[in-house]
Nucleic acid binder design. Structure first.
Length: 229
DNA sequence: GCGACAG
DNA sequence: ATCTTGTCGC
């Protein structure tokens, strides 16, 4: 099994965190198409919190990309080491996520994060950060447009419209269910935006959110409950 | 200065 | 993220 250690220079405050983002953003790879949709593995990642106890639980669920069957799961429980600050989400979630990923035996394949990749104030969101640290292909699927703007995509499933930061397309608003609020897809690392959207559609045969994040969400919540009572 | 703001 | 009852709909 592969180990994904937390960098020794992990920041403790906001100023240092932004400096880390500025130092690593150039390592993001966006010219690789990424794994073909429907092949290999797709891994969902999510994190849950218990603010009262300062506890964080992360879960990673490896799925067979073709059947969406669960191949392997892993969780990690730890202490919250960073507050939620818009734009710095990665520093709150990544420590526990790396520990959970290190518990896997299977190849993660494409990692799908609950949040953003390149669609970020400094173009280095959670998915991109996780990709650079692990070398894995990553993408983000967020439930909200964050600070970006978009025009509602057409009603049919599969319709999409650009997610904009000014005039720059940083991601895409993708309709995964007919007539339902779209999800916001962005490339993280070693994946193309078009390919990321194709993966997102394959992962949503029934619900608005990807099966990968739904599985990971349920698992990290369960892990958090079991860590308490 | 004010409001907005992934999870 | 998390706190929370009922409610509308397939």
């Amino acid at each position: 099994m592969i180990s994904y250690p937390l960098p020794s220079d992990w920041p403790a405050d906001e100023k240092a965190a932004r400096a880390v983002q500025d130092a690593l953003r150039d390592r993001v790879v966006l010219d690789e198409p990424g794994p073909p949709p429907g092949t290999g593995h797709v891994t969902g990642v999510d994190v849950a919190y218990d603010d009262e106890r300062d506890v964080v639980a992360a879960a990673v669920v490896v799925l067979d990309a073709a059947t969406l069957d669960v191949v392997e799961e892993a969780t990690a429980v730890g202490t919250v080491a960073f507050p939620y600050v818009p734009g710095l989400l990665a520093f709150r979630e990544i420590p526990a996520v790396l520990t959970a990923l290190s518990g896997l035996t299977a190849d993660p394949g494409l990692v799908v994060c609950d949040g953003y990749g390149i669609a970020h104030p400094r173009r280095f969101g959670l998915a991109s950060h996780l990709g650079v640290l692990t070398g894995l292909a990553t993408m983000g699927v967020a439930k909200n447009p964050f600070t970006f703007s978009y025009e509602a995509p057409a009603a049919p499933r599969g319709s999409a419209s650009p997610l904009l930061d000014g005039a720059e397309e940083v991601g895409r608003a993708l309709r995964t269910r007919e007539g339902v609020k779209p999800v916001f897809v962005s490339a993280g690392h070693r994946v193309t935006l078009a390919n990321a959207c194709a993966h997102a559609l394959r992962l949503t045969p029934r619900y608005r959110l990807p099966e990968s994040t739904r599985r990971a969400d349920a698992l990290c919540r369960a892990a958090l409950r079991e860590s308490a009572g």
